[in-house]
């Protein structure tokens, strides 16, 4: 009898503890909001290197210069390819509008044609220029979407020594799931600096699709900045490593950098 009492008390204590912890966890939506409130500076210039590795270990490396500037809540991003020589001059420009109902505007300059092509941003689940991140992933960087998922906070876990909230997201509709190419996602968000540290995603058929790890996070000019993203596609065996270097938030980026003419003329 005494034993039963002790067990019952222990179970009750555990249940109360779990309940209390669940109540203490912030909602997924509030975590998503926090990731968008993080200071990213007004402008940023960086060297972005993409290492594309296929399942047989073949590596292709692309070095780019990436420039980003906020105009209020509108974000403009230009990426200029520096190497390899055969794709040098390729440039990508996007106008990222804050209103979810407004599609972004995107242009791609192809030096072989010497022409700038307008690209539809409606296919945000398409993969970005041969990498394992989608256009939507690139747009969000280390934030998580405010509108595309219903969130549930699952708990806390430590990633690379940092406490992170684990948030599970299910697309708000089948249509959104198809658009994004994800049937379920799981995010590990740094509880202190509100940066995504890790993400797992599943495709629409619920097969494990990708693991994204954000590494080497440190302050640059007072702004928390990631220096490495590793993306592993479990379906294809392909992997992309994004390396950021020479990051500068204080550089003065001229407005005419974010024009079609600038894509053609290069940096």
């Amino acid at each position: 009898m005494k034993t039963y009492k002790i067990i019952s008390l222990a179970v009750l204590t555990i249940m109360v503890t779990i309940g209390t912890n669940a109540q203490n966890l912030p909602s997924g939506q509030s975590i998503a909001k926090k990731t968008h409130e993080r200071n990213e500076g007004i402008s940023m210039k960086r060297k972005l290197t993409m290492e594309l590795k296929d399942k047989r270990g073949k590596i292709r490396i692309r070095e780019t210069i990436s420039l980003r500037k906020y105009y209020g809540k509108e974000k403009r991003l230009a990426i200029f390819y520096e190497t390899p020589r055969s794709v040098q001059g390729t440039a990508f420009l996007t106008f990222d509008y804050p209103e979810p109902s407004v599609d972004d505007d995107q242009w791609l300059y192809m030096p072989a044609l010497r022409k700038t092509r307008r690209i539809s941003a409606a296919n945000r689940g398409d993969y970005f220029l041969g990498t394992d991140l989608t256009y939507e992933d690139i747009k969000l960087e280390t934030r998580i979407s405010l509108d595309d998922y219903n969130y549930k906070t699952l708990g806390k876990e430590t990633i690379e020594g940092q406490a992170c909230f684990i948030v599970e997201g299910t697309p708000v509709s089948e249509e959104i799931a198809k658009e994004l190419g994800y049937g379920k996602v799981k995010f590990w968000v740094d509880a202190k600096i509100w940066m995504l540290r890790k993400a797992e995603s599943w495709d629409v058929a619920k097969n494990h699709l990708k693991t994204i790890q954000i590494k080497d996070v440190k302050e640059v000019q007072g702004i928390w900045t990631y220096h490495k993203i590793v993306v592993k596609n479990h379906k294809t065996g392909h992997e992309t490593i994004f390396l950021n270097s020479d990051i500068d938030y204080k550089t003065n980026i001229s407005d005419d950098t974010f024009t079609k003419e600038s894509l053609i003329n290069g940096l």
């Binding site: 599609d103 505007d105 092509r117 307008r118 690209i119 539809s120 941003a121 409606a122 296919n123």
Partner: peptide, 11 residues
């Protein structure tokens, strides 16, 4: 001219 309409671009 060019204009994006959904997944298509008219030019």
């Amino acid at each position: 001219f060019n204009k994006v309409l959904g997944s298509s671009t008219l030019r």
